[in-house]
Simulated scan of single mutants.
Amino acid sequence: MTDDTSTPSDEAAQNAALQKAVIVGIQPDHERRVLDEALRFARLLGAPLVVVHVDVTRFVTYEDPDGYVHSAPIDINFDAGAAEFEAVQAAAAEVLDDSGITWTARQLVGDPALAIKQLAHKLDAQLIVVGTRKRGIGESIREFFTGSVAARLTHRQHRSVLVVPLGESVPDSQKEIWPE
């Protein structure tokens, strides 16, 4: 699923060049560790890397028979998703431009797990890389309502999913993972 900035023929040509890619899901202000792990596995697999950001403020309105996805905004702030995607692209470029691997950035729309799953299917991806969520009560509430993207990816498709832990690990002696 891509936004309306690309044309169907551009997307089809790009998809052909990105077959067997490693896909990494990134949010603005992500921890670099997620991108570093995705880069490491792309090198190990000799695969291109696709950095994706999912704009959850947009939803899929319909999909053409050739796979081109049309979307519409949920709210009136049209620029929020574009600004986030630009931030993701800039952060990825800092790490990947001199890496020697083929990479591209894509903005997907809608539900993150479903959007990443569909792109992985289109590209016949070898691996999907995502980070864990940050610890905290706000994130716990968000996960309660939306679910874990990593868990939903692992249960709804056959590709391997690498989940990169973020932040400090919880000690074994601590019973509650999110005590706040």
Results as ranks from 00 to 15, higher is better:
residue 141 I to K: 01
residue 116 I to S: 06
residue 166 L to Q: 11
residue 133 R to V: 06
residue 165 P to W: 10
residue 142 R to C: 03
residue 169 S to F: 11
residue 124 D to I: 03
residue 136 G to E: 05
residue 126 Q to A: 13
residue 157 Q to H: 14
residue 83 A to D: 13
residue 137 I to K: 00
residue 114 L to A: 11
residue 153 L to C: 02
residue 124 D to H: 09
residue 163 V to Y: 08
residue 83 A to P: 00
residue 154 T to F: 05
residue 107 Q to P: 01
residue 120 A to H: 10
residue 164 V to F: 11
residue 127 L to Q: 01
residue 143 E to M: 06
residue 147 G to H: 02
residue 83 A to Q: 13
residue 144 F to L: 15
residue 140 S to E: 04
residue 138 G to C: 00
residue 105 A to Q: 03
residue 142 R to K: 06
residue 139 E to M: 04
residue 147 G to I: 01
residue 141 I to Q: 01
residue 134 K to I: 05
residue 128 I to M: 07
residue 127 L to F: 06
residue 115 A to G: 07
residue 100 G to C: 02
residue 170 V to L: 10
residue 168 E to P: 10
residue 149 V to L: 07
residue 163 V to H: 04
residue 133 R to W: 04
residue 112 P to D: 10
residue 129 V to L: 03
residue 124 D to A: 12
residue 171 P to E: 12
residue 102 T to N: 08
residue 143 E to C: 06
residue 104 T to C: 14
residue 120 A to R: 05
residue 130 V to F: 05
residue 79 D to R: 13
residue 79 D to K: 13
residue 170 V to W: 13
residue 89 Q to S: 12
residue 168 E to C: 07
residue 89 Q to C: 13
residue 135 R to K: 05
residue 114 L to N: 11
residue 120 A to F: 11
residue 137 I to N: 00
residue 149 V to I: 13
residue 122 K to N: 14
residue 160 S to I: 08
residue 92 A to F: 12
residue 100 G to T: 03
residue 146 T to C: 02
residue 104 T to V: 12
residue 126 Q to C: 05
residue 119 L to W: 11
residue 151 A to W: 01
residue 94 E to C: 09
residue 82 A to Y: 09
residue 139 E to N: 06
residue 83 A to F: 07
residue 118 Q to G: 07
residue 143 E to P: 00
residue 167 G to Q: 10
residue 111 D to N: 13
residue 130 V to S: 00
residue 166 L to C: 10
residue 107 Q to S: 09
residue 94 E to D: 15
residue 109 V to I: 12
residue 162 L to I: 09
residue 155 H to V: 01
residue 102 T to K: 08
residue 170 V to M: 11
residue 147 G to Y: 04
residue 116 I to F: 14
residue 153 L to S: 01
residue 134 K to Y: 08
residue 142 R to F: 15
residue 144 F to I: 02
residue 170 V to K: 14
residue 161 V to F: 07
residue 116 I to P: 04
residue 148 S to L: 01
residue 166 L to G: 01
residue 136 G to Q: 01
residue 95 V to Y: 07
residue 155 H to R: 13
residue 168 E to H: 14
